[in-house]
Amino acid sequence: MTTTHDAPPAYEPLPEDADLWTAKIRRKLVRALPPDRMVPDRQPAYLSSWIYIFGALTMSALAVVIITGTLLALEGPAWWHLSTVGLFVNSLHLWSVELFFFFMVIHLWGKFFMAAWRGNRTLTWMTGVITFMASIGAGLTGYLSQTNFESQWIATQAKDGINAIGAGAFFNVLNFGQMLMWHIMILPLAVVALTVLHILLVRTKGIVPPFEIASPEGGAHADATAETAGVEG
């Protein structure tokens, strides 16, 4: 089987349907996100380093963060102070967050030293940086949602920095309800949406090739023009 679909379509798309919005959206989607590019079986031979797994490790940690956060949400923000099960779930949430940042920063270092923005991958880099920033916000609001001494301390300290840039007027770190909403609704949505966008960009563009150096067959490609550049894969 050479087809990338499991099941054959119930009908062949008909030419007279081509103007339907649905058909147009489908054509656009298939063109923008071809399935064999999204979930490929093969990768370029230069993928040969453990540094490549840190994206997947970051994503995995994010999944654990969201699962454990959902478990905490089931019983509410004060549960973990009162229950040993709750405390353990809180521990799972804390350590998955520590690992999430741990892997994400190593992923960032790796991509930096590979200059992974080359070949029209600027947006991939930028979505990564914004995801990092949104995650820091999620981390901060998480600490503020603990409802313990650490929340009190961080809230009363962080207010000065956030007030100083004028943001404190509408982002009040002393307002627990507001911070909890940001932590369990707004920022997770942002981090997950940004991550999905980031991964779609990675899959669409493919992984960045190594820097060109003199190859056995000939000279460096220093005289190549940008016409061919960036259309790799």
Partner: peptide, 18 residues
């Protein structure tokens, strides 16, 4: 410890044969 482990992990990731 976390930061040292990050640096160690980074270099391990690029040095250990894949």
């Amino acid at each position: 410890l976390v930061i040292v482990l990050m640096v160690v992990t980074f270099f391990a990731a690029i040095l250990i044969p894949f």
